[in-house]
Write a protein that binds this DNA or RNA. Structure first.
Lengths: 207, 207
DNA sequence: CCATAATTTAAACAATTGTTTAATTTCTCT
DNA sequence: AGAGAAATTAAACAATTGTTTAAATTATGG
């Protein structure tokens, strides 16, 4: 029975924090969402901040877990990229608010970055950067900094979900239509990035 | 003398709202930034919300003005794209917080969208969409929905500025280094997008 | 069954919020 | 210079915030 309420509050906190952000929601809102008394939030988690830190860390885990998994696989590099983008789109279709949630928290509280370092370490240890540099040194892959490769991939995966309200009003499309757009957009993103990173593959990828 | 304090408050509000967002800042903070009494904020602007609406509208103007200007020019289509990206990067280098500011406000207050419609109308009237469709019908430009073309451009221009804190920690770079990365990233974005939109130009653009 | 601990509750806490009021200062104009 | 308007101020307003307290309820273990 102990777990019941504690977990209910955690679930409610996840939903509310992601939807509204840390500052834009109240302890009472979380309690209400969990169907519990306000004081229970602090009884189980000491403070709103402590609870948020907990939630944030677990979200970051989910956020990066799949990425690391792909990097550690023994797929050929191009397939890693392709699978990574596929998974990002699938994940973000379920949790479109997360990129905003993470970026906002990082700008509000730069120290939150430290919680991410262990997971980021795993990306580094996967050897994917080394693999990329090797492909670049043979001339098979376009020579560009890892920062920019990351930017290319993440920009084209995250932003389309972050900007959904903006895009919908600009082009006057509804929910269903936009979801459909995202689905085909994913294929464009994959082609465009692979084309750009591997110019010599172009004919194959474009077929 | 009347304009002095009113303008000072507006300036302070712009700075504070952009840096912290609407909910994450206080009237007293704006007043302090302006060096004025709190009551003056409401004396001149009725309420914090009214002041924000004013600021938001003017920011959106700046945000879209340059875009419309490019679209209305008589440059060839490819050059419009190139110039658009150049200007976006230049503008965002000066105001990197604006994309986040806009997206957050739109998710917080969906009705704010209505303020943007007049400016968006101007984009439509520039005929740039018609121009694109014509290029697509001749097969010169890749066939894809306007939503996705917009997404490609805006994703690759805005996200790199929005994700600066995230990217800096992921790759362990400092301010100066990241600014430099952005500069060269711009050229990649231009090449990649033009390559993808106009596959037949590839050799030329890649030279 | 009962005492002890754990859980839950309602109420209050001080701090901060946006906003208003009423008094005071500063400006404007004849 | 002085009356009336505008601008500015300090103070207070009610509402909401995160958090704490102290009492009430429930569960636990001998």
């Amino acid at each position: 029975m102990i777990k019941k309420t504690e977990q209910k509050i955690k679930d409610a906190a996840l939903a509310v924090f992601i939807q509204k952000g840390f500052v834009n929601c109240t302890s009472r809102e979380i309690a209400r969402e969990a169907g519990m008394n306000v004081a229970l939030v602090n009884y189980y988690f000491r403070s709103k901040s402590k609870l948020f830190a907990l939630i944030f860390e677990s979200v970051m885990q989910d956020f990066l877990k799949s990425m690391v998994q792909v990097f550690c696989s023994d797929l050929p590099f191009r397939e890693k990229i392709r699978l990574l983008i596929e998974r990002e789109f699938a994940f973000l279709a379920e949790h479109p608010e997360i990129p905003n949630f993470v970026l906002n928290e990082l700008s509000r509280n730069p120290k939150a970055i430290e919680d991410m370092l262990p997971v980021l370490q795993m990306v580094d240890e996967s050897g994917v950067f080394v693999e990329a540099k090797k492909l670049q040194s043979t001339g098979e892959m376009r020579s560009m900094d890892m920062v920019q490769i990351t930017l290319l991939i993440v920009s084209n995966c995250h932003y389309p979900f972050m900007a959904e309200p903006l895009m919908k009003v600009i082009h006057g499309v509804n929910d269903k239509e936009y979801k459909a757009q995202l689905k085909t957009h994913k294929t464009h993103v994959i082609s465009m990035i692979l084309n750009y990173l591997f110019p010599n593959d172009k004919i194959l990828l474009n077929a």
